[in-house]
C-alpha cells in the first residue's frame, strides 16, 4: 500500500509530508514550493508505508508541469490511498479535486487543513455531516502546529472507494434540510 498526498498548491501537503515521515522537504507559504514528487516512509500501525508528496494540482486536467507530474503519479499508483489535503477556508474548490479522485475509484481520506485559518475567517464546517455525505473519513487539521494528525493517521485504514452516485444521493436526499 502507498499513500499519496494530493491537493491544491499551498494547502500544506509538504508540511504533512514532513510531519508524517520526519523527512526534510522545503515548506513555504506560497504556491508551487513542491514541483516534483517526494517519497518517504511512515509508520502505519506497525507497518512501513510509502508516502508520496505530490505537487499541487487544481484538477486532474493538467495545465502545467507540476500538475502533469501529479496526474502521472496518480495513474502510476493505482493501489494507493489518497489523502486529499483541502484548504478548509476554501473548501469548495478543494472538494472539486477530491471528488475527481473519488470518482476515479481511489480510496480517500479528506484532511481539512488550515482549520485555524477557517476559524479566523469565521467559517464553520459540519465535519460529521460532510463525512456522512462523502462516505470517506474527514479530519480537521492544522498542519503547522500538528493538530489532527493522530486522528488522520488512524483514519487512513478506514478509507474505501465510494461510488459517486452514492455521494450524489446522500447530498441530494438531504437537500430539503439544507442551510441550517
Amino acid at each position: 500500500m502507498k499513500i499519496l498526498l494530493m491537493g491544491h498548491p499551498n494547502v500544506g501537503k509538504s508540511v504533512f509530508f514532513n510531519r508524517l515521515t520526519g523527512a526534510k522537504v522545503l515548506e513555504s507559504n506560497y504556491p508551487g514550493t513542491t514541483v516534483d514528487f517526494m517519497k518517504g516512509w511512515m509508520r502505519l500501525e506497525g507497518e512501513d508505508v510509502e508516502l508520496i508528496d505530490v505537487p499541487g494540482a487544481f484538477s486532474l486536467e493538467p495545465k502545467d508541469r507540476a500538475e502533469e507530474v501529479a496526474v502521472k503519479m496518480l495513474a502510476e499508483n493505482k493501489d494507493s490511498v489518497i489523502v486529499c489535503v483541502l484548504d478548509a477556508s476554501k473548501i469548495e474548490r478543494g472538494l472539486y479535486l477530491a471528488l475527481e479522485i473519488i470518482e476515479k475509484g481511489y480510496p480517500a481520506v479528506v484532511a481539512l487543513n488550515m482549520w485555524d485559518v477557517a476559524e479566523d475567517k469565521n467559517i464553520r464546517i459540519d465535519v460529521e455531516k460532510l463525512e456522512r455525505i462523502l462516505g470517506v473519513p474527514v479530519v480537521p487539521t492544522t498542519a503547522i502546529s500538528g493538530e489532527g494528525f493522530k486522528e488522520l493517521v488512524s483514519k487512513i485504514k478506514e478509507a474505501a472507494p465510494v461510488k459517486i452516485e452514492k455521494i450524489i444521493e446522500s447530498a441530494g436526499g438531504r437537500e430539503s434540510a439544507a442551510v441550517s
Partner: peptide
Amino acid sequence: PLSVDARWDLIDKISKQTVEFG
C-alpha cells in the same frame, strides 16, 4: 465520470449543507 458542471452542482449541494460562513 461527472461533467464539470455536474461536479460543481454536487459541490454546491454539499457545501450548502455543511459549511456556514459567519
